[in-house]
């Protein structure tokens, strides 16, 4: 069974997912960071594939991605680094990146590598749902790799119906109209949106703007859990990732 499905079967509340870019801050940090995240009780990890032009990301993730690229990170190198990851890491792993990188790598080769190293899902924000369904869905399903879809406060009800039907794994619920790394402000509209998504038949995690224990708990009260990216990258940069993860407990 796919580890993402297993996770949501065993745990419905307060799921903590952490995002960090591969090869950051140092090229060889990918595996040690994964080990730390697992040791500190993180439920799910999203490994960022660094890209030169990350449209949906704010300044912190952009510059982390750039640093990773300057370090020499690439998608092939990431798969090499992850070759034996399943000897030690048992939590579900997701690769998050932009479509150009995957397309250039070759979709079939990418999925084969995902299967080989034990990747459970991908998040590809700029691959449109329609193209995915027509061209790639069968391949992803055959490889047992979930394509996690995003919903946003701007997503219309009509589109939400389509996304719900096409979704696999869980829904990535973007908290607010912004790129990553903003602050999450509470509002009635936002809560109504969270509740609407939580009412769907598929689990959901809230991301964008979650940066500490308070915002995590707030977000997690409306969903199955939440995703932290920018705040964790800042902690990696400062060298206090372990303390940051403990502060979320």
């Amino acid at each position: 069974m796919n580890r993402i499905d297993q996770l949501f079967q065993n745990k419905q509340k307060d799921i903590l997912s952490i995002y960090f870019p591969a090869g950051y801050p140092k090229l060889e940090d990918t595996l040690p960071t994964l080990q730390l995240l697992q040791d500190k009780g993180v439920d799910l990890v999203e490994i960022g594939i660094p890209f030169s032009d990350p449209l949906a990301d704010g300044p912190v993730i952009q510059s982390a991605a750039k640093q990773a690229l300057d370090n020499g990170m690439s998608l092939q190198l990431l798969f090499n680094q992850l070759k034996d990851v399943r000897k030690s890491i048992t939590i579900p792993l997701i690769l998050m990146g932009y479509w150009n990188t995957v397309y250039k790598f070759g979709v079939d080769a990418f999925l084969t590598e995902c299967q080989n190293v034990g990747i459970d899902g991908v998040i590809l924000p700029d691959l449109p749902l329609e193209e995915y369904q027509e061209e790639y869905k069968e391949k992803f399903e055959a490889a047992g790799v979930h394509n996690v879809l995003l919903v946003t406060p701007q997503t219309t009800d009509k589109r939400l119906t389509i996304i719900e039907k096409a979704a696999s794994g869980f829904l990535y619920m973007v908290s607010t109209a912004a790129t990553t790394g903003g602050a999450l402000q509470a509002s009635k509209e936002r809560e109504a949106y969270f509740k609407k998504i939580a009412g769907l038949d598929i689990p959901s995690l809230i991301g964008f703007g979650i940066h500490d224990k308070t915002s995590f708990q707030h977000a997690a009260s409306f969903s199955n859990g939440a995703i932290i990216g920018t705040a964790f990258i800042k902690a990696l940069e400062k060298g206090n990732a372990a303390e940051f993860l403990e502060s979320l407990q």
């Binding site: 449209l55 949906a56 700029d126 449109p128 946003t152 701007q154 973007v174």
Partner: peptide, 8 residues
């Protein structure tokens, strides 16, 4: 080829 954030 845009993120869902730009869809609307």
């Amino acid at each position: 080829y845009i993120p869902e954030l730009l869809r609307k």
